[in-house]
Design a protein around this nucleic acid. Structure first.
Lengths: 340, 340
DNA sequence: CTGAAAGCGCTTACAG
DNA sequence: CTGAAAGCGCTTACAG
């Protein structure tokens, strides 16, 4: 394998100095159009590949943003990552997505590695439970960084935080069930004491309290498996409960199938509202009511906010919450009668 | 923001030469233990951050592998990417995941960018329909690269291909349905003439032909929406069809819910076998029979194969197919009676 | 084990 | 517009 050509090779081939080649690379207006074309032809002829490491060494930004995600297997986060990346890509920024798999050590390792690789910015949906030493290192490296969806470092002046307005979401879901006549409403799923759980549950608690109703919380992992298990538990031990606000759609999906297995039909025998409104909600039967957190838009907006920060120096607000809305479907309203 | 410290700063602080610091960085055995500890203490004290761009410029590998994925929103590919990344991470390799979103232009841009960033290797699940010029550029850059799950460049001697044994999967699914007494079996989903569709359908066609049965193909996008639509079509226009082998679990899920909406119960009124065996299969009702392609294992094995290539020079076989198996569940066998 | 020196491929003033 | 020169932070022989 022969060495990759350098700007010197291109310069020789094009009959110009290497400064000129560099200028062409920077899209500088100083270069005459004919010269530029000549240089570009030479680059093509020699299969020239720009060496970013060299440029980087001279202090040029890498144009690489690190997207650090706590659980890429969860469709909610996948959607966030995918839409943020598309937005960056449209603006010519490359994105490196990394999954930390809820492991603080992997997150620390990932962040360190990205710092070494010289990322220009970070967008992080962090894991809970790690120390914030990674954030300290980011701060010292002076890399613009936003926390999204989860806040683990309190210094939002340095690491601005953006998320959805989960408290309002919990309120909308609960009020909806109350308006449908439910009195015994549970909140199902979400690990105890996690900020997200507290936020999503806050709206639920407020409405229940205001209505003089008893709040009942079934904590658990935000998984399909837990939802399924809880459907059985409720059916066996808590027959009085008639509806549930779920921590997430995954939990609600689990309940949907858990109930289906024992012949309980959602929307008729039990009402459920999920949270996140992932695509699947309108593709299951019965269709799942949910709190829409427009994650596609959230991903795009987060990327744009980040770009304004690193390109135009516009520092994002310390905390920003995107609005949510209730999407009522069959799992709470009741399904249309079957036609088959 | 003051400049980041360099090895010179560390050397001064530790009272050694910069060569020594570099040696410590390389974990060289040439450095005395006491010296090493001294240097490490200085690095900690100064918040030294290794500059990979500088090292890279000197010809050291980046230890970065590019994972280029055609559709990260599809749980099947997400699982592949996540498990491959974990495997690389365990061996100290950083991974940059990128989603090309089935867009040839984005794929080309992504690959070029990763080449510039100096990735040490590529693992690519490519998009269909782009030219292979990106692969040409990879070849010229001399970067070890594997195609996984989809083969778009025929030069498997240069770009080894690994996937699952889909043909056998199609065979197992079809034979299973035949053994359950089905005669009119359709193949649902998969875009026409795509290699994957052809492979998955090949086993189906073989069995149907051997049994003297008529093969019937309903092509379409591998999505839940298409599955749901097809359930309706079959119920309306093809009452004689009694079972389906689906191109993917997403299609099968769509059929499951489409049928549920019109009161057709899977496993009783109609039998379905999906493909991929994503986690959801055992969490829906009725549980979905599927062809298990152990994607977690596939991701890990692919990463390991790649590592053996770049670290030990072991070139992977041109084509490798991992075995699949049938997992029979309620959607083909019939559900147990409801207990509720 | 350690120090001095060259060089990786690029960018950036600075003269012309 | 273009050329010559310095330097980014590291690694790598090469002497000591």
């Amino acid at each position: 394998m022969k060495k990759r050509p350098t700007i010197m090779d291109v310069a020789r081939h094009a009959g110009v100095s290497k400064s000129t080649v560099s200028l062409v690379l920077q899209n500088s207006p100083l270069v005459r159009e004919a010269t530029r074309r000549q240089v570009e032809a030479s680059m093509a002829a020699l299969n020239y590949v720009y060496n970013r490491s060299a440029a980087n060494l001279r202090g040029v930004g890498t144009g690489l943003v690190g997207l650090v995600i706590n659980d890429l297997r969860n469709p909610f986060f996948t959607e966030f990552a995918a839409s943020a990346q598309m937005a960056f890509s449209r603006r010519g920024f490359a994105t490196a997505i990394a999954n930390t798999n809820e492991d603080p050590d992997i997150q620390a390792q990932t962040i360190d590695s990205m710092i070494e690789h010289g990322v220009s910015a970070f967008l992080i949906s962090p894991v809970y439970g790690g120390e914030t030493s990674s954030f300290d290192r980011i701060e010292r490296a002076g890399i613009p960084t936003m926390q999204v969806l989860r806040m683990v470092d309190e210094r939002t002046d340095i690491f601005p935080f953006a998320s959805h307005d989960y408290a309002t979401g919990g309120k909308l879901a609960t009020r909806h069930l109350v308006e449908l006549g439910c009195r015994n409403i549970a909140f199902v799923g979400g690990l105890e004491d996690r900020p997200i759980t507290l936020e999503r549950m806050a709206g639920y608690r407020n409405v229940m309290e205001a209505e003089g109703l008893r709040a009942r919380y079934f904590p658990g992992r935000p998984s399909r498996a837990f939802g399924r298990e809880t459907a059985r538990t409720l059916n066996r031990d808590h027959r009085d409960i008639e509806a549930a606000v779920c921590f997430s759609d995954l939990v609600a999906m689990g309940m949907l199938f858990g109930f289906a297995e024992i012949g309980v039909e959602l929307g008729r025998d039990f009402r459920v509202v999920g949270f996140d409104d992932i695509e699947e909600c309108s593709l299951v039967f019965p269709q799942l009511s949910s709190i829409r957190c427009d994650t596609t838009r959230f991903g795009e907006k987060s990327a744009e906010t980040m770009l304004r920060w690193i390109e135009d120096g516009v520092h994002p607000p310390a905390v920003h919450r995107y609005p949510v809305e209730l999407v009522a479907r069959h799992s709470s309203l009741g399904a249309p009668r079957r036609s088959g």
